[in-house]
Design a protein around this nucleic acid. Structure first.
Lengths: 209, 209
DNA sequence: GTCAAATCTGACCAAATAGTCAAATAAAAT
DNA sequence: ATTTTATTTGACTATTTGGTCAGATTTGAC
């Protein structure tokens, strides 16, 4: 964003709050469906109900807009992992983490797909976040899980691959939703209920001593 | 493809075999990295070592080329699931399936990403394959797994969610490779070895009675 | 109501893009 | 060697795309 009043430290106006909200929502929709290069500013502007120059009044470039979305996303995406509590019961903590990730996939599928698109395409715009905050947090929680394993409180599994399996199985319900709808058909409506049951069983079995 | 000799039933020429091979390889590279709309014919032609009009001599349109890749892919992608043998030992059969999928992710990451891109973006070009051959095969194998569960030979898990968890955990190593490299760093080189160990443990635990 | 700041628009530009085509060149068949 | 067929190219078109800009319009503080 590059608005005069903001860059001089003033508060955003009512219109700025309304319009940037609509823009970000439309951008999330379009970027998450087509990826960065496949999305067009015309489409985003259309969906947000503005003209393209008006959109560019709020965000100076396509890349600016995309970066804003990714920046907002990263925090929300790391939060569930942060919440794993060293004090709690290991298996419950990890299963709660699975549930939180599954809720994210259910409630924020567009965000999940935006992230997936970015990673699949080589993460050119969030490489720093991956090697920085993400890696730091994962290393920390992996150490915790290893400690639990060493103390004999959960099975001795590789914590990194455990985390990958949690990420992949939960995000799958957002990112591959189209495929799931095609395959499940009848039971599609209850997919998240079914997923919670299945994943709960799977990770409890995996971690049981 | 729309070449005169082929459409009159003749054999492909040496040049046709060579050039279409190079084109498909380049197209796989570019489509898998940028998605359909993000990929450009110029980039594909460049990478294949031809001029764009020359590329369009072999494939009449961008969509033709993309469809050809998807068509070739679908068979290879379903094969591991087809191989699950009703006669074999249930847990071994399913674990072998996991291994085969993991090998696909390791040996054909571009194909995996092409597929992922297509699904994430709503599968507009393979919707028929999903509701047709894919669903048919999944239904068949899900019934087999249910039968095994009912016979008490594996744990009573939902076969669809089991299959989803196999797809997601294995493909993750191809589709999210960038993220895995960022997070694992030191152990990145042995990621598939580690994945095989971890996933073998996870699915054996999940299915154990 | 006035005025400055904020918001919006239409017309515009340069680059990129999918696709065409007539004509030139290379291969293969005779 | 000739002729037919396959292959390649450069020059081209129409459209889409990200982005600019001067000026018009609206908003909000006073």
């Amino acid at each position: 964003m590059n608005l005069q009043n903001l860059s001089t430290g003033k508060k955003p106006t009512r219109i700025q709050r309304e319009k940037t909200g609509k823009i970000l929502d439309a951008a999330l929709d379009v970027f998450s469906r087509f990826g960065f290069r496949g999305a067009t500013l015309d489409q985003i502007a259309d969906q947000a109900g503005l003209s393209k120059p008006n959109l560019l009044y709020y965000y100076n470039s396509k890349e600016d807009l995309h970066n804003e979305l990714l920046a907002q996303l990263m925090d929300k995406w790391l939060e569930p992992l942060e919440k794993i509590d060293p004090i709690g019961s290991p298996i419950d903590e990890i299963c709660s983490y699975v549930c939180r990730k599954l809720e994210l996939a259910r409630d924020f599928p567009r965000e999940s797909r935006l992230f997936a698109n970015e990673i699949i395409q080589g993460a050119p715009r969030i490489a720093d976040s991956l090697t920085g905050p993400l890696k730091t947090l994962v290393d920390e929680k992996a150490a915790l899980i290893s400690a639990w394993a060493k103390a004999g409180r959960i099975a001795d599994v590789d914590p990194y691959h455990l985390i990958f399996s949690i990420w992949s199985t939960t995000q799958h319900y957002a990112d591959f939703d189209t495929q799931i709808r095609s395959v499940m058909e009848d039971n599609y409506a209850s997919r998240f209920e079914g997923a919670e049951n299945y994943l709960s069983h799977m990770f409890r079995s995996t971690l049981a001593i």
